[in-house]
Amino acid sequence: MPRALGLTRVAIVEDHLLFAESLEVALSLEGHDVHRVPLDEGMSSSALLTALLRAQARIVLLDLDLGEAGSGVRLVQPLVRSGAAVVVVTGDSDRARWGECLVYGARTVLDKASSLNTILATIRRVGEGRALMTREERDALVHHFHNEKRSDHETRLRLEALTPREQEVLGHLMLGHAVRDIARTFVVSEATVRTQVKSILSKLEVSSQLAAVGAANAVRWRPPQQQTWA
């Protein structure tokens, strides 16, 4: 027999203890059956997912930045598949990341700065089977995600177009090494390194070393193992 609305089982996954406790108290006062899943030291993402599935919650309030357990985004899809309604509550303002959660099945995304009343009202709407977002809001966030995904793919293609030498140089730039230091490492002239840097900027379609490093970091690119220049 399904639980009555007031006895909805809600799981909380939140790495800020005070915020998690506030949610737990507020939801309990509303009559919900609240289960706060602790983020134990060294807890892996898979262990956290197992704990959440065991909780058998109807609704999961999920943070996105979970310390050692990693990103909450990867938990959305398996939780939704288990039958849980996932409501993301995050301090991350990255709209593309919000859209990714929606693509994976989250019912809505709330800013952590939202009032407790807003979060409680959202839980009530889930229990009542009501829509949590307008079609326009959802589509706009999903559009952010797809745009960023496409942009990341294009950046990776540009990175792959770098020669092995250029990849090595970019790797050193990502470590904060100056042109002079890179030249000394590979026993070449600074002019040679500057030529390589210029080519890197051109291929990545950016105007500065800082922007090149930022582009590589944004897609979590890492250079191949350093090799000695011929």
Rank of each mutant, 00 (worst) to 15 (best):
L120Y: 07
H144A: 02
A113N: 00
V193R: 07
Y104S: 10
E190W: 06
C101I: 00
A131I: 02
V213H: 14
S202Y: 10
L53W: 14
E41W: 04
H35Y: 15
L17D: 05
M1D: 02
S28Y: 03
A191Y: 15
S82T: 01
G83K: 10
E137G: 00
H143V: 01
G83L: 09
S199L: 13
R74W: 04
R54M: 06
R3Q: 11
G99N: 05
Q56Y: 13
M43E: 05
R3N: 08
A106L: 08
L157V: 07
I200G: 06
V73I: 08
E41A: 15
V76C: 11
D63T: 00
L7V: 01
Q56L: 11
P38W: 14
H35L: 11
L204A: 08
L120S: 01
D92H: 01
V10M: 10
L23Y: 02
A26N: 04
M43R: 11
H146N: 09
S207H: 10
V88I: 08
V197Q: 13
L120M: 03
R95D: 00
A183T: 01
A191G: 13
R74N: 01
L201K: 06
A11K: 04
V86A: 12
Q56C: 12
R9Y: 14
A178D: 05
R156N: 13
N147Q: 15
V206W: 15
V206S: 12
H32G: 02
V126Y: 15
V89F: 14
L116R: 05
T228V: 02
C101A: 07
D152Q: 15
W221P: 00
A131D: 10
L170F: 14
R95K: 05
L17P: 00
R74L: 03
T90P: 01
L116A: 05
R156I: 10
V60E: 11
E160Q: 15
E100F: 09
A131W: 06
T108E: 07
R81W: 11
C101R: 02
R125M: 10
K112S: 03
S82C: 05
D65P: 00
V80F: 13
L79M: 07
A212H: 10
R180E: 08
V103Q: 09
S114A: 14
I12G: 06
L48S: 02
P224F: 09
A161F: 14
A84D: 09
L17S: 06
L141R: 08
R130Y: 14
H16A: 11
P223N: 12
V187A: 12
A230I: 02
R81L: 12
L66K: 04
T118L: 11
H32T: 02
R95V: 00
D63I: 01
K198M: 07
G72D: 02
G129D: 08
D92Y: 01
H143M: 08
V34S: 10
Q56K: 15
R184M: 03
K112E: 01
S207Q: 09
V10W: 13
R130M: 15
Q56F: 09
